[in-house]
Amino acid sequence: MEKEPIKESFEDFIKSFFYGKRSDLSFKFMSDLSSEQASLFIQNLFKDIVDSIDDNDFSSLKQRLLQGQIQGYKEQKNFDYDDGPFHSLDPPVSSMKLSLMTSSGHFTKGNDPKPLGVEDMTQEDAQRRVFDFLKEAPQLSEIPFDTPPNDLNVRHGGYDIRGALKDPNVSFPYQRMMELKSQGVFADLTPNAFSFVGACSQKRLLKKILPVWVKKFQKLKVDALVLVPV
C-alpha cells in the first residue's frame, strides 16, 4: 500500500526556515511574519526576481529582502531599559585610541575557541546547536589587526555567514579600521580587534564575562570602541 504524502501547511513551510528542514538564516525572519505577510513577501519576491533579471538591476530585490527582514524583526521584544549610561568624549576623535569588537564569531585559524568543547565545529553544527550556545558564556577571540583575511575563520549559528566568508569586513571591518587609522581619522588602535559569538547566555555575559572584558579595555587605555552586532 502506498504511503500517503505528508501534507505541509503554509505556516509549517515558513517556520521551516527558522532552524527547520529549510533552515536559511537570511530568511529565518519569515517565522515572525503572519501567514498573510509571508505570502505577500514571497509573491513580491518572485515578481522582483523576474523584474531584476529583465532590468539587470538587483536593487529592488535587495530592497524587498531588506523590508522583509525589517518587518520580521519589528515586533521582537527582549531587554527593555528606560535609560542608559553615556560617557561623553572631548573631541577631537583624531586624538583617540580606538578598538573594534563584533559579535560576528570571527577567529584566527589555529585559535579555534572550541565552542561547547568542540574543535573545528562546522557552521552547520553551530546552527543545529544554536540553542545550546544560548546557555553558554561567550568566548572572546583576539585578532591582530594585520591578520590576512585568509587567516580568518568565522562560525556563528545565528546568522547567514556567506557574506562574511567572502569578505570578513562585512561584519568585522578590521581592514577598514586600519585604513582609517592610516588616514589619521583617529590616532591609535589596540594591537588586536575582538570578536565573539553573540548568540550566548545574557545572564552569564552580564554577571561573569562583562566585568572581565571591561577591565581588559581599561587596561588597554581605550577611549572608545566600535561595536558591530550581527
Binding site: 553615556f86 561623553s88 561567550p138 550566548c200 545574557q202 572584558w213 571591561v214 561595536l227
Partner: peptide, 15 residues
C-alpha cells in the same frame, strides 16, 4: 549581546 557590552563599557567610562 553587543547592547549589553556597550552599556557596561559606557558605565566604566569607555565610549
Amino acid at each position: 549581546s553587543v547592547g549589553h557590552v556597550a552599556r557596561a563599557l559606557e558605565e566604566a567610562g569607555i565610549a
